[in-house]
Amino acid sequence: MKKLRITVNNMVYDVSVQVLEDDEQVMSGTAYPGSLPVPPTPARPSQAPTPAPASPAPGPSRPATGDANAIASPIAGTVQKVYVEVGKRVEAKSPAFLLDAMKMDTYIYAPRGGEVAEVLVGTGEAVQVGQVLMRYRPED
């Protein structure tokens, strides 16, 4: 243990510092109280030190269809705009449709990138919750 005196904003703090490497050497040889091994570090790029899980972009819950190649509407509403075209690529997280739902503009974002195989609704059309709006060309 080392004692340190630290001054922050003219306030004096006395702190004790335990240097773990040194103290661990003292401990070695006695596997008591508990014996815990050093876990291996996972191979992943180390970056963000904040551990809180990354929040996703605001978007609807997963499509209710369970079909990974379909985008289903999370809410009932009227289609105001269609941003996707058959045969063209859509990028992940870009808007695919604009719905009028609960008297508000509600964007439906593409959950992943891919080629659009089918667009099943048009402007002005009413859609139900869970209704499939478009399908991706399946990826192999």
């Binding site: 773990l20 103290d23 661990e24 401990m27 109280p33 508990g34 014996s35 815990l36 091994p37 050093v38 876990p39 291996p40």
Partner: peptide, 19 residues
């Protein structure tokens, strides 16, 4: 995956574990 003891080692401050 990790072993049970490795998990506890990650959770706890060094040398604080009592089994």
């Amino acid at each position: 995956k990790l072993s049970a003891r490795e998990r506890l080692a990650l959770l706890y401050d060094p040398n604080s574990f009592i089994e």
